[in-house]
Design a protein around this nucleic acid. Sequence first.
DNA 1: CATGAATGAGGTTTCATTCAT
DNA 2: CATGAATGAAACCTCATTCAT
Lengths: 205, 205, 205, 205
Amino acid sequence: MSTADTPSASAGRKRADVRRNEQKLLDAAAAVFVRMGIDAPVREIAAESGLGMGTIYRHFPTRADLVVAVFRHQVDALAAAVDAAPTAGTPYEVLRQWVHQFVDFLVTKHGLAEALHSDQAGFESLHNEFVERLMPVLDQLLKASTAAGYTRSDVRAYDFMLAIGNLCIGVENFPDYQARRMIDLLLAGLARTAPASTGEEPEQP
Amino acid sequence: MSTADTPSASAGRKRADVRRNEQKLLDAAAAVFVRMGIDAPVREIAAESGLGMGTIYRHFPTRADLVVAVFRHQVDALAAAVDAAPTAGTPYEVLRQWVHQFVDFLVTKHGLAEALHSDQAGFESLHNEFVERLMPVLDQLLKASTAAGYTRSDVRAYDFMLAIGNLCIGVENFPDYQARRMIDLLLAGLARTAPASTGEEPEQP
Amino acid sequence: MSTADTPSASAGRKRADVRRNEQKLLDAAAAVFVRMGIDAPVREIAAESGLGMGTIYRHFPTRADLVVAVFRHQVDALAAAVDAAPTAGTPYEVLRQWVHQFVDFLVTKHGLAEALHSDQAGFESLHNEFVERLMPVLDQLLKASTAAGYTRSDVRAYDFMLAIGNLCIGVENFPDYQARRMIDLLLAGLARTAPASTGEEPEQP
Amino acid sequence: MSTADTPSASAGRKRADVRRNEQKLLDAAAAVFVRMGIDAPVREIAAESGLGMGTIYRHFPTRADLVVAVFRHQVDALAAAVDAAPTAGTPYEVLRQWVHQFVDFLVTKHGLAEALHSDQAGFESLHNEFVERLMPVLDQLLKASTAAGYTRSDVRAYDFMLAIGNLCIGVENFPDYQARRMIDLLLAGLARTAPASTGEEPEQP
DNA sequence: CATGAATGAGGTTTCATTCAT
DNA sequence: CATGAATGAAACCTCATTCAT
């Protein structure tokens, strides 16, 4: 109160505070989304963050803004992961590993997979966010694997990405559902039947 | 259909109305669920059906009751379909066909796939309904195909069924998502890689 | 079904049925009023009586009609009780005894005392019923006791009757409340202090 | 009032509004309870107070909370009244006066006496509130009067308090009912019959 | 800028009452 | 006459959102 009141300093200080608040909000929202789903009461997030509700609305005018922000944060990490990963094994193996990282991510942050498909107004942006950030990564992995003859060439990264996300839905609600196995089934379906010999008869029109 | 309609049931006149109303409700609810999801306001369903709200509560005290009823209706049809189908082709082909019927069903009645995974209180019954009615059918198809050497033996009908349901999620909201292809990918993953030559030891019991 | 169908007999039979139904309704209503108060759902009474709701409305178009009927039944019994009682002891003693019978009645049929004071539309008739039937009885007892010099002359039967009723309220809800003692206190206050000697100046204007 | 209103509490401005609103609510609720009983629609109270329904729920989550609050307010005043009163006359006279104040209170805030006996869930607290605050006061008055030889020793403050409350019921609905006289009758019954001569052994400790 | 009290639309549910059977 | 299914008004309560402090 005594030292920080210089007008010149206050601007700088404020900005730092604002940024810290935004981070608090993101963390809190992530936690609450996990607990209560993306429709959690705003007040809950406010309480979790220790901030006021008005502050949430200042930073994220619509709920979609907040959700997108929460997930962008984590999607960024995932997109970056592909580079950080040691290039271990064949391109197909690299693809497998990334897919499982993706699954880890979806499964850990529970409720996220479901959220990707919400038809609630304004959540296209969430979907878009995901697509824009992760599809290129997945596309590149797919292409590399296909080019090396490991995988079919008729699978679009977009479909594949959504499929992975979808297969993760319900993991918490139905503990007996073993999503990993289905992911592996999908990956198996993706692999070339005979390693670069048969010629890959496309069964699909 | 043939035996139950005997006109002799004169005292059943009222009964007939009641039954018709119940049917109206089921139809209306199905329609509204498609439009607005399973969380649609009860009032909406009342309006759609042309009946009063109280009537809904009389027939289906909880929302889950209504949802289950709506879907049971349709699940029954699907369960029956396996018998009606002409036994065309190999067991694997029969499996494929039934799976695609299942997908037709899920995709047509939109919102249904999502509903299967609702964690809302009381929807376990919906999930159970599905599992109890359809899993046996799918299990039988799977076993037949595996026995004939067409498919892997390490895939549980339960996982497979949920996976199929999951892959159908988002079909309407994201028209560019081609669920069918992913279903086919899953089916491809299910098929034995080399027709009874490579061995492909099932690594899971 | 076979014998009773003669048209001549049906009219006579009906009337008997109607009367029996009315009695069923009164009994059922009394029971339900005890259980759930006079605001109990109509359906509850229908269920208790084994009759349909429509039948209730036919016999007692408004709720007040039913309530009045239920209590008239029991009030009649109480009014008659004064004659049936053996004239034991002094007029004051007779008065005491009748008051305690009244209390028995109110306390037994629980909810009744409260009902007497309901301001719900149409319940004046209930109150009136009570006043018209019982006040004359009480008045007569009071006058007899006063004439014999046992009790004060400045107490109106109307007030006294309502007071007794009031003192019985809450007996079930608050089991520690000993209504009888307060009734006795009231009766003590009613008695002439010194047996026809002191004069007991009335403090009231 | 003198110390808490210091203008220095600039941050407390909001606090003042909140407190004022709470007061508005209490006043409005008191008024509505009088008009429509303690089961009055929440919306009615909201309208009366000029505030929103949500505000009521914020301040008083359950209906019982509101009712208790409304009456606590007034009970406090009554409990305090015993000290404020000039010690006029004999202990019995003081008792009489307080009882009549109590009656004034009950009669004025109409509906209150009835409310004390509601068996609705959660209204024990209302009853308790009354008992805890007022019974000690009444007990002290009774004991003083008894010690001075004016009144019987076998009357429990609890019963007496409920009796007074009960006798006030119906004052508005039945304007011909003169509760005051019955209160006086009860007080007369409480007084020792002959001033310390007859003996009248107290049969209860 | 941050706060959180206030708002009130909108969902759910209950029941008195009507009326077709 | 009896029945009880249908109706829908009315009450409850919960949040998303605004805005005075």
